[in-house]
Design a protein around this nucleic acid. Structure first.
Lengths: 329, 329
DNA sequence: CTGAAAGCGCTAACAA
DNA sequence: TTGTTAGCGCTTTCAG
C-alpha cells in the first residue's frame, strides 16, 4: 500500500537511483532534481522502507537488550540508560524480557537476527548461546555478568561496597549478621556475600547465609517470618537487594520489632521505595550501566578502536546510610 | 559472514526453495530431503535472515511501543504487559522513549517503518503524526489517550474512582481540598480532577486546583513548601499521581505535619513506594493496559474481526485506602 | 515433492 | 549529475 521508491521515481521522472540519492545525500544531486524528487515524495507520502534499506546495506541500525523483567526499578533504569544512548546514536532498540520463559535462547537467537548487536543482562542467556552468537558475528556486551570468552562486560562494583556495608553494620553494634540471598544465583550477589563475609570475619563478627533465591518483597516477608519464628533475631539482616529488604522490613515492623534499634536491616540498589522505608542500602549506577553498555556496543559495531583497554568496566557504587533520620529523608 | 540459504542449498544438494520449505513447512518436503537440509543447516550454523524473510513476506513480525520514559513504575509496567503478550504472539518489541526529545515525531516515523504496528502511550506522538501513520497503513492502538480519528484506544477508568476518592476524603472530614496536577497536561489527570470536583461539590466541600505540570517527587516537595508557606493547609491534598504525593508527603512530615491526621494526602497509581509511605491512592491495572493494547494491536494486524465492538476499552481501577494501619501494611 | 525464476524495496558500483 | 544493473536473503508462484 505505501508507495515505493519506484513510484516516486516515476512521478518525478527520474531513476530510482536518483531518488535514493536525493533522499539521503545532500551532494551529488542537482538542487532542482532533488526538489522535484522531494516534491514527488511528499505528494506520494513516501517513506523509505527500512527493510529494503537494511537489506541493501546489510545493517539494521537497531540494537537489542535482553533482561529478566521490568517489575523492579533496577532493570527499567538500565534499559532507560541504554535506550537514551541508543536513540542519541540513532539506533532503534529491541527489547526481550526472558522472565520465566523457557524459550529464551530461541528468542535471543531470533533477536540477534534483527539487530547489529545486543546487550545481555545477567544470566538471561546461556553461555553457550552467547558464545555461539558472538562467534557468528553478533556484537555482544554483557552487563552484570562475569566474562564469557573475551566478551566485553560492564559491572557495578560490589565487593568494596559490601565490605563498607559490613563495617557499617559492625560499627552499629552487630555481632551476629544474617545475609539473605543466593550467592549462586548471580555473581553480583556472590560478591556482596563475599564482601560482607570478609568485613564480618575481619571484625570478629559472626555471619551466616539465609538461602533465598527469589529477590522479591514476598520472599523477604517470608524470610522475616522464618526468622521471627526462631525467636532469636540476629543483630543485623543484610539483604541481597532492596525488595527483599523491604518485604522483610514490613513484616518485622508489623511484628513490633524496632528497626534499626533492635535489628539493622539493609538492602541493595537504592530503589525509590527504599527512601520511604528509611532503608540503608547501596546505590548502584543503574542508568550508567545501560548507557555505558550502549556506548561500548556502538564502539564494537562501528569498529571504534576503544577496545585496546580493559574489556571489563566496573562502575562505582555508594553506601547509603539511613534510619537515623525521619521518613522521606 | 553468516551462511545464507544458498550455502545450505549447495551443501544439501537441493534448491533454495527446498531449503526455504524445509526450514518452515513440515509438509511438502520429503522426510529424507528435509533431514539432509536440516543437517546442512546445522553444519553451517545457518539461521534464516529475518531481514530477507521480512522483505519477502512484507511483514516485520515486530511491534513498537512509544512511551515518555521508564523512570516511574507506571510505564515500565505497561511495557511489561505489552512485551509479555507480544512475546506470546511471537513478535519482537521495539521501544521508543520520547523523554524530552524534540525529534520524537521523526523517531516514531522511523519506528513505524520497522514494525507492523505500534502502541502509543499518552501524548508522546502528535495527533498529526498518529493520523498520518494510521492513514498510511500502520496499525495503531492508543493507550491512556483520548481517541484520535477512529483509532482504537485503551484507557483506565478515571472519573469513577476519582469520585470515590473524593467521597472518601469528604467522609474523612475534608471540607477544603486541593488538587495538585495539571488537567490540561493529560486527559487522565483531567478526568481525575473532574471526578474529584464532582464529588467535592456534591458534598458541599470546597476544592481548588494547585497547578503543577510535572508529576515528580521534586514537584510534589516544592508544592508542599508552597502550601506550608501559606500557613493555611487544606484538609486534604489529592495529587495527580503517587510520585507527586510522595514528594509532598515527605516534605509535610518533615515539617511535622500529621498525615493523615491533620491533612489527608492521596496519590494515584499505587506504585510500590506508596505502600511503604502509607499512601491512599488508586490502583491502575498498568500491566493490563499494556497487555490489552498488545492483543488489540495483534487483532488489527492479523485482521481478526474483534473490531465490531466498541473501539474504546476502559479498564477498571480501584481505590486503595491506607494510613489507618501501620507501615508496610 | 522439487526446482527455476520472479520479485520484496532499497543501495551501490559502474557507465554514460 | 544521472541512469542501468546487480544484488542483499528470503518466499512464492508456476512448472515439471
Amino acid at each position: 500500500m505505501p508507495s515505493t521508491i519506484r513510484d516516486v521515481a516515476r512521478e518525478a521522472g527520474v531513476s530510482i537511483a536518483t531518488v535514493s540519492r536525493a533522499m539521503r545525500d545532500s551532494t551529488s544531486v542537482r538542487p532542482d532534481t532533488r526538489d522535484r524528487v522531494m516534491a514527488a515524495a511528499r505528494e506520494l507520502e513516501y517513506t523509505p522502507s527500512q527493510l529494503g534499506r537494511q537489506l541493501a546495506e546489510r545493517r539494521y541500525a537497531a540494537n537489542g537488550i535482553v533482561f529478566p523483567d521490568l517489575s523492579g526499578p533496577y532493570y527499567a533504569e538500565v534499559v532507560m540508560g541504554y535506550e537514551d544512548v541508543a536513540a542519541e546514536l540513532r539506533r532503534s532498540v529491541l527489547i526481550l524480557s526472558t522472565h520465566g520463559r523457557a524459550d529464551a535462547d530461541a528468542a535471543v537467537r531470533d533477536m540477534a537476527g534483527r539487530c547489529d548487536g545486543l546487550v545481555v543482562l545477567q544470566r538471561t542467556v546461556s553461555d553457550e548461546v552467547v558464545e555461539q552468537l558472538a562467534a557468528r558475528g553478533t556484537r555482544i556486551v554483557l552487563v552484570a555478568r562475569p566474562p564469557v570468552g573475551d566478551l566485553i562486560t560492564v559491572n557495578a562494583e560490589n565487593s568494596g561496597s559490601a565490605r563498607a556495608l559490613g563495617e557499617h553494620l559492625v560499627a552499629g553494634g552487630a555481632r551476629r549478621i544474617v545475609f539473605v540471598g543466593d550467592p549462586a544465583a548471580s555473581p553480583d550477589v556472590a560478591e556482596r556475600w563475599q564482601g560482607l563475609s570478609d568485613a564480618a570475619s575481619g571484625a570478629g563478627a559472626e555471619i551466616r547465609l539465609a538461602q533465598c533465591s527469589e529477590l522479591s518483597e514476598a520472599a523477604g516477608a517470608a524470610e522475616a517470618l522464618t526468622l521471627l519464628a526462631t525467636g532469636d533475631l540476629p543483630d543485623a539482616i543484610a539483604c541481597a537487594n532492596d525488595e527483599l529488604a523491604l518485604g522483610l522490613l514490613g513484616e518485622l515492623r508489623a511484628a513490633g520489632v524496632d528497626v534499626p534499634g533492635q535489628v539493622q536491616v539493609t538492602g541493595w540498589d537504592d530503589v525509590m521505595a527504599a527512601r520511604y522505608a528509611d532503608l540503608t542500602t547501596v546505590r548502584q549506577p543503574m542508568r550508567e550501566l545501560g548507557a555505558t553498555a550502549a556506548r561500548l556496543l556502538d564502539d564494537l559495531i562501528t569498529g571504534a578502536a576503544r577496545g585496546i583497554g580493559d574489556p571489563h568496566t566496573h562502575l562505582p557504587t555508594e553506601l547509603v546510610v539511613r534510619g537515623t533520620t525521619r521518613h522521606g529523608g
